[in-house]
């Protein structure tokens, strides 16, 4: 693939941005590794998630639901629902990346919040967007997995998660993922309704199911918004 129309300084700037995002995500991978092991997964299971699933929100959700005793099916469904947005990112990346064959399989794995956002932030020339996508995706992949490894081994070495407050780190991780999305009143309303539905159903449904039920709030809200002009 030719990259002749991307200026070297532009290319370097994108690469250093990609490494910076990778480092930040690596630190976040550290907390994922620790939380996953504290939730009852082995270090190998934790690492497998980072290597294969490679989408933070879904990974946190899967270990969170499993750790709360929610069962495999509820954990899987929650992870899938949270991962659906990556499919939307892939749709928007496809015309820019123009990938086929093995490169398409690799691009799919690297299609996450960070790589998509970096590509969208560097739309011109198209080579810049492609460079931003691949550099960010690879940098996050490597450092996210490295962070996961260190976090998992660290947490496996220490004892009871509650002593270190690791159980409190789980909701903190989720609210840190949620926070940037609370951009307007609609988002706040959906968030509060989702939380309320999940709490109301907690005493009556098996762990894991109340969170899935909260997903219905999003569907209902989307339908209501569709009816409003």
């Amino acid at each position: 693939m030719s990259s002749s129309d991307l200026h070297p300084s532009h290319r370097r700037r994108i690469t250093s941005g990609a490494v910076g995002i990778g480092l930040a995500t690596g630190a976040y991978g550290l907390s994922f590794g620790a939380i996953s092991v504290a939730s009852g997964l082995t270090a190998l299971q934790t690492q497998t998630l980072s290597l294969l699933m490679f989408t933070g929100g879904s990974q946190f959700a899967l270990v969170g639901v499993l750790g709360a005793g929610g069962g495999a099916v509820a954990a899987i469904l929650t992870a899938w629902l949270l991962g659906a947005r990556n499919g939307m990112y892939a749709l928007s990346m496809a015309p820019t990346l123009q990938v086929t064959g093995l490169r398409r399989l690799a691009a799919a794995e690297l299609t996450i919040d960070e790589s998509t956002a970096m590509a969208l932030a560097h739309p011109d020339p198209p080579d810049a967007a492609r460079h931003a996508f691949w550099r960010t995706g690879l940098s996050v992949y490597v450092l996210w997995n490295l962070g996961t490894l260190l976090g998992a081994l660290g947490a496996a070495a220490i004892g009871d998660p509650a002593t270190l407050g690791l159980d409190a780190a789980i909701p903190a991780a989720f609210i840190a993922l949620l926070w940037p999305r609370l951009v307007d009143r609609t988002m706040w309303a959906v968030a509060l309704a989702g939380a309320a539905v999940a709490l109301a159903l907690t005493p009556v449904l098996r762990p894991g199911l109340p969170v899935l039920a909260a997903g219905l709030v999003a569907l209902i809200a989307a339908m209501l918004m569709g009816r409003r002009p």
């Binding site: 988002m187 968030a191 999940a198 709490l199 907690t202 997903g215």
Partner: peptide
């Protein structure tokens, strides 16, 4: 599709925050 894709993570993450903060099994 775009609306649901935008709202789904918000509802799910907020539910996860709430449950992981207050739930112990099925008790709040």
């Amino acid at each position: 599709v775009r609306r649901v894709a935008g709202l789904l993570p918000v509802a799910l993450l907020a539910a996860l925050v709430a449950v992981q903060t207050f739930a112990v099994g099925q008790t709040l």
